[in-house]
């Protein structure tokens, strides 16, 4: 076996002095980092799954997410649909930037990168709106106005002459209830949002670099590819968050 001594390099990919994965160390590190980050999100979603499975009741997503700017209620999931579309769209522009990078086309890279940054910023804006809206409904990381056990109280308070909104706020502030749903929602979407935010920041930096011609000088646009991987990963995570929080 290994005691066989052969010529140093027969040109096989695993023989050393080579890149067996056909990827530079930077790309490899990004891939493995993403794998690692995937486990972080997995653990969070696992916590979500286990707690949801163990809970005796759970908020109905159709009720929670039924608002969009301009529509106070009655449009379930429309807004998150828009958010999903924005994020997928920005993923597409990112791929287009990478593709342009392969053709060493600086102007196109910059164009698509700017679109990607805009997409990311729009997504963040949407998330900010959604959070604000939920806050205004009385939700926070430790308050869950959608908890089914609050419904009778809200009804009671409404019967006492309060508006539905007031009654909800009163109930959520005074009655102990299970707020796992909102805790998990804000934690996980927050963690995802944090990833989007850092992605946008990184995208801005590399857009500026691309404008300045750094990658042109370097001769390749691999940096765009690496950052692109990260950006798609953020999209990927959203796909799961979307399914598990909004649909299931």
């Amino acid at each position: 076996m290994s005691t066989h001594s052969v010529a140093a390099n027969e040109g096989k990919i695993w023989d050393g002095g080579n890149e067996p994965f056909g990827a530079s160390y930077g790309k490899l590190m990004m891939w493995f980092f993403l794998l690692s980050d995937a486990f972080t999100f997995t653990a969070l979603l696992l916590g979500y799954g286990a707690l949801r499975f163990s809970a005796l009741n759970w908020a109905d997503p159709d009720v929670v997410f039924q608002s969009a700017p301009g529509i106070e209620s009655g449009a379930p999931l429309v807004f998150v649909g828009i958010m999903t579309f924005i994020l997928i769209m920005s993923s597409v522009t990112m791929v287009l930037a990478v593709e342009a990078g392969h053709r060493n086309s600086k102007s196109e890279v910059v164009k698509w990168m700017i679109w990607t940054v805009i997409g990311g910023a729009m997504f963040l804006g949407c998330q900010a709106w959604e959070w604000t809206h939920l806050f205004s409904e009385g939700a926070s990381i430790t308050k869950n106005p959608f908890a089914p056990e609050l419904v009778p109280y809200i009804e009671k308070f409404v019967a006492q002459g309060m508006s539905h909104h007031e009654a909800t706020l009163k109930a959520v502030n005074e009655i102990p209830h299970n707020y796992e749903f909102t805790s998990l929602f804000f934690t996980i979407t927050g963690f995802h949002g944090f990833h989007v935010l850092s992605g946008v920041v990184i995208n801005i930096i590399i857009t500026i670099n691309a404008m300045a011609g750094t990658y042109q000088r370097r001769g390749h646009y691999e940096m765009i590819e690496k950052v692109g991987l990260y950006w798609h990963f953020v999209d990927l995570v959203w796909v799961f968050v979307f399914t598990f929080f909004y649909l299931v």
Binding site: M94, G228, H232, L236, F240
Partner: peptide, 20 residues
């Protein structure tokens, strides 16, 4: 399915070396 398409095409994994 969506995840597959994102990983395979957008992240380009389908076209990487089989080791990766």
């Amino acid at each position: 399915f969506k995840a597959f398409y994102i990983i395979a095409y957008f992240m380009h994994l389908k076209f990487e070396k089989i080791n990766l």
